[in-house]
Write a protein that binds this DNA or RNA. Structure first.
Lengths: 210, 210
DNA sequence: GATGTCCTCCCCATTTCGGGGGATGGCGGG
DNA sequence: CCCGCCATCCCCCGAAATGGGGAGGACATC
């Protein structure tokens, strides 16, 4: 095995050109790593993965066309062995959980240092998992919590849009009483004091989007 | 005037090392620009500005210790001629307005292309102002709107934290009736359907933080 | 087939909100 | 000095939300 073969081949998927530039520079500075492709959205990432089948994929979550989570799911359904590291600004523990469940091997903050990032890449390439300490502890805090059900998230999203229970009921084709029940459960699960607080907590934790 | 003197001397202030790396690389690629210092928070930015007095400062809004807006205010109070370009992920028109009012000469999104960014730097260096088209149009949409008063923002923040009007009143040492009055005004000004919607709108527009 | 979770619906009572009106004093700009 | 904006407080009232209870059916898991 020569030096060429031992390179860790990397795909970068992020919609910020400047950040890609930064990553590219960082990778260029590592003798054992090589950037093989870039993508600026989830669809391109999937395409690029098919073409290059990189050893490691660095993926942002928030991207146009197809978000990072869906891209991970898509890639992993075709290539179950794909090693993907999510690189994101903080968006709550729930998003991290979704990424991990989708098959990510790492979850890092963009604010992390170069050194830690290259370490993580080598680590994940060697088959380990890596989650930023702050995110890990945040995830741990909510481990015991019941997650919101699909229906509860749906109701909460509509409430966040400014709909009254009655309106939500009409939109979802269910009774207002059912909406109330869902909201009661949401308030309990999120330890929120009222619906407004519930929306804030859910957004902070990445459970719903604004 | 030799080539050295004609360089645009740049200070970069952003808490993401990777983005600084990207900017640094971009600047290095321009023959007429030179990166003279980096900062990873507002305090460092102020310090670095005093030391280097750069021609252009690229500043993120969201930074630890001292945020970008406060840093701009601080720098401009000492150096009224400072030309500062805000570089940020989108956080609503209100934040942009605050930055401009604080004295920023430009407001750009991090998702913008290298080419546009270097153009903007030259443009601002030449004394012009530059605001991203999307942000400008967003700002225009709300030009006619009444802004929230200090008190109204204060009330709304507390409501976002899950406090009932009565609790907000107690915290602020005013009557519940007054809180209601403020909330009525907030709902009207933000065209919100209820308090929950008001919080969502205010967060989206960068009027309050989560 | 028993258990559990989810979704659905219903009852009760109390509290909180939202929308309408009006009123006062302060403070700064014109 | 007057006007406008801000902040404060008050009234009334109907609508909405909250908090407690219970309960049935679907569906998957074990």
């Amino acid at each position: 095995m020569n030096a060429m073969d031992s390179n860790i081949r990397i795909l970068v998927a992020d919609d910020h050109p400047l950040l890609r530039e930064g990553l590219s520079g960082m990778i260029a500075g590592q003798p054992d790593m090589k950037l093989v492709a870039e993508a600026e959205n989830g669809e391109q990432a999937l395409q690029a993965y098919r073409t290059h089948q990189p050893d490691i994929t660095l993926m942002d979550v928030q991207m146009p066309k197809m978000n990072g989570i869906d891209a991970i799911t898509a890639i992993r359904s075709e290539f179950p062995a794909a090693r993907i590291v999510v690189l994101t600004t903080y968006k709550g523990d729930a998003q991290a959980v979704r990424a991990i469940k989708a098959g990510a091997s790492g979850y890092l903050l963009k604010s992390m240092l170069r050194k830690d990032l290259v370490e993580t890449i080598r680590s994940v390439h060697a088959g380990r998992r890596r989650i930023s300490a702050d995110i890990a502890s945040e995830m741990a805090e909510h481990m015991a919590d019941d997650e919101l059900t699909t229906r509860e998230r749906d109701v909460l999203s509509r409430v966040a849009a400014g709909n009254a229970n009655k309106e939500v009921a009409a939109q979802m084709g269910i009774s207002e009483e059912t909406v109330k029940t869902h909201m009661k459960n949401v308030l309990t699960k999120l330890s929120a004091r009222d619906r407004t607080h519930a929306v804030v907590v859910a957004v902070r934790r990445g459970i719903i989007d604004l």
